[in-house]
Amino acid sequence: MLFQDIVFWVLSVLAIGASLGVVLVKDLFRAALLLVVVFIAVAGFFVLLSAEFLAVVQVLVYVGAISILIVFAIVLVRDIPGGGKDNHLKVVAATVAALLGALAIFVAFNSDFTDLDALEASNADVAAALTGTYNLDATEAVGDEFEDQYAVAPPEGEDGTQIGIFSNSTGAIGGLFIRDFVLPFEAVSVLLLAAMIGALALLRQREEDS
């Protein structure tokens, strides 16, 4: 698919360039904005992978919430806009980053992706959910009539699920969350709640301070 290739390469360049910018740009505010670009590019990758629900959640959570918090923190703290001061950790940081990058490349090239395929096969529900084929068995095409296309709903399979690439993965993910993975899901929410309360407790001013 030529079109998808083009999009993939554009997104890749964007993501890598922007993430380099996040690290190299001195102005923290601009770095935070570049981080947003990285997140959006990653959302684009999700779209390419036909996981459009994940893409939207990526935008909603990472762009709409987390980046805003980062930007908020930068804006609220003064004396940052000039950029951080130079320190003597440049060489160490570069070394660590290079090592980590090399490790990632090494892992990528030496992984046996057939294992992953096997895992995917074994946990077909997850994979199916991400690609929107969860609980789907009807693959037949719709009828020839052009009148059908004036109906605004996307064509549906016999059991009510939608077919096609952009099909209904949302419901499938939801189903997974509250059926198969309900315990981890709830555990994460408890963890987040604990983190929030902890943050509040840390930030709280002692009464004698004020």
Partner: peptide
């Protein structure tokens, strides 16, 4: 709970 920021 009160949070203080720098005066502007």
């Amino acid at each position: 709970m009160t949070l203080k920021s720098e005066p502007v």
